[in-house]
Amino acid sequence: MTRTMKGMVKALALGLAAACGVAVVSGATAEELSLKGKRIGVSAIGTDHYWDLMAFRGIQDRVKELGGEVIALDAGRKDQQQIAQLQTLIAQKPDAIIEQLGNLEVLNPWLQKIRDAGIPLFTVDTATPHAINNTTSNNYNIGAEIALQMVADMGGKGNVLVFNGFYSVPVCKIRYDQLKYVLTSFPDVKIVEPELRDVIPNTVQSAYSNVTDMLTKSPEKGSIGAVWACWDVPQIGATQAVEAAGRNEVKTYGIDGSPEVIKMVMDPKSSAGAVAAQQPYEIGKTSVDNTARYLAGQKVAPFTFVPAVLINKVNAAEKGKPFLDAAEKGGVK
């Protein structure tokens, strides 16, 4: 089979999998990948969130599986530290660097330096022109799907509270833009202005108090239909706030698929309406596979999508379980 055909078949398979909503373990292709004798630098802005931790682990586990050596760097959410780590990493001259999330504005000049030093750069969930490949979920799809689910649950009308504190993070921008695009077709669904701001740290507590305040401001039942966030940690606080206020008509929507949120969606009494669950561990692994392919002289596409699954109230019992199992396997509950 030629490479293009193989690629086409794989793309078709992935597309099909995404369409069916099946959590497919990708990267399990027949080809023999190896990173023997290679040193791979891995830099993550932080691992305090489930998604980040699983992707970071996926990268490290896969590099070791393929016989490579990992230089793993967690910047603990400190930009200064991440820059210092990248600077030292460039001096270490690894065979490739995989960078995972962070502030693009801060990172871009340094990612440029990585390329200037002749080190191949791969990214996880970070779209930048300096990377050879960015492995991520299809955030265009995710953004549209979760927005459509929300509109459907709202019956096509009502007010939405939106958390928009991280528009500078590329994936959040895409998801938010998709939400806005979907809403252009449903003029009766309105975003409450001013939008809310999600923060790191204290994301859950802050979201809880923000949503509580807004519900107090609009006390009539039905005046707020939904809460949306571009990730699912604010969704936890929002869901708790809605339940504490006894406003069960309000449903919450988010993206990522942290185990506690999946459990909320699976609970029929919970106000968590839906979550788009990604496969961060697979994303991390796939990024390493791309790196190995590139180092073996193969051509690699500028981006790779790992399928995500929309978990809603209807399919939660069936679709949620594989994700919880994967989390448990990774030691996170």
Partner: peptide, 14 residues
């Protein structure tokens, strides 16, 4: 800091 990060970013308190 601004020169090194090409920006002002939250979290300097760290």
């Amino acid at each position: 800091t601004v020169s090194r990060l090409s920006a002002s970013t939250p979290g300097s308190g760290e």
